[in-house]
Amino acid sequence: MGFKLLSKLLVYLTASIMAIASPLAFSVDSSGEYPTVSEIPVGEVRLYQIADGVWSHIATQSFDGAVYPSNGLIVRDGDELLLIDTAWGAKNTAALLAEIEKQIGLPVTRAVSTHFHDDRVGGVDVLRAAGVATYASPSTRRLAEVEGNEIPTHSLEGLSSSGDAVRFGPVELFYPGAAHSTDNLIVYVPSASVLYGGCAIYELSRTSAGNVADADLAEWPTSIERIQQHYPEAQFVIPGHGLPGGLDLLKHTTNVVKAHTNRSVVE
């Protein structure tokens, strides 16, 4: 069995187990497998329904001669939608809004960016022009300005110390501490036991640490421990890039980060 097929099978099995364990909360999309990078042309966006009122959005972007996937989250909030992270750029984010209108038909009224990198804030200006209120932590807003990236308009308070959590509509926002970046936030959907790890969490097929220019490698494993301790009931975990899975993604990420750190020390 090929690795790609095995990865998709694991996603399907995880979703099936969740649907059985929580039949009222989960209505997993039966329309197909989780979209992969090879299936999404740059400039297009796919939506994948995880649970009743919960979707991931998947886009792709060219970077350094390669094409990478990027995940975000959409959560229903009454007759409105909360968006977590842009679709990595203005063109993708405009396509995301169009796809949401086509498939869901509810307005996106608020959006949260989970850290300051372009795959999370690139497209904020498109959201703002569409009347979406954009939010991020003060740290993310400051770092985005320093980096020359787009800056969300509103500040999220109460997320300055490791372990801080605040309720934001249908989700809980959690600051686990520094990891992929010093400002990275985690998003949890309690009604569906869905954990969105953003770039602080890796997919299972990833074996290298990737972009760690703004990471705190020493603190990252401790931050992941905080996530595990705060959300032990999480059933569906979405990484910032690639295929979702279960809580095993947290341990896998820790292993990859520690291996990278150990290699760096040896070198």
Rank of each mutant, 00 (worst) to 15 (best):
A213M: 12
I50L: 09
R142H: 14
K91G: 15
A19S: 15
D248R: 07
D214G: 13
G197W: 03
A218L: 13
A15N: 14
V166M: 12
R141S: 05
P221H: 06
S139W: 11
D216G: 06
Q103A: 12
G72A: 01
L204G: 12
D183E: 04
A87P: 04
W88F: 02
K91D: 15
P239W: 01
F174T: 01
S161A: 13
A59V: 09
I224Y: 00
F174D: 01
G72D: 05
D77M: 05
E267D: 13
V171A: 06
P23F: 09
I58E: 06
I238P: 03
Q49I: 08
P35H: 07
I17K: 15
G89F: 00
A213D: 10
D164F: 06
V42F: 08
V212C: 06
L47H: 05
L204P: 05
E44S: 14
G177Y: 02
H230W: 07
G158K: 07
S264R: 12
G163R: 05
A165M: 14
I40V: 15
D125H: 11
C199K: 02
R141K: 13
G105R: 11
K91H: 11
Q235C: 06
V54N: 02
Y48A: 13
Y196L: 05
A192L: 06
S16A: 15
N92Q: 07
P239C: 00
T114Q: 00
K8H: 07
S7N: 10
L73I: 07
S162L: 10
P221S: 10
S62M: 09
P221W: 06
N262T: 12
E147D: 10
T153V: 14
E44H: 11
G43I: 01
G240F: 03
D248G: 12
S162P: 15
V45I: 09
V166K: 09
A136C: 06
G53E: 09
L173W: 01
P170K: 05
L10A: 12
A178S: 11
G123Y: 03
I58S: 11
L195T: 00
G2I: 07
V108A: 06
S16N: 06
D85T: 00
A234T: 08
W55D: 02
Q235W: 08
V28M: 15
P23C: 13
L195G: 00
N149G: 11
I74D: 02
V237F: 04
N92K: 04
G43N: 09
A90M: 09
T114M: 05
P176N: 01
A90I: 06
P239Q: 03
K102G: 10
A234E: 03
Q229S: 13
Y231Q: 01
G122P: 05
H241I: 02
T86G: 01
S113H: 15
N211C: 06
E233P: 05
N211D: 08
G245S: 06
A165K: 15
V121H: 03
T36W: 14
G105N: 08
L82K: 00
L195S: 00
E267I: 07
H57V: 02
A25D: 13
I17W: 12
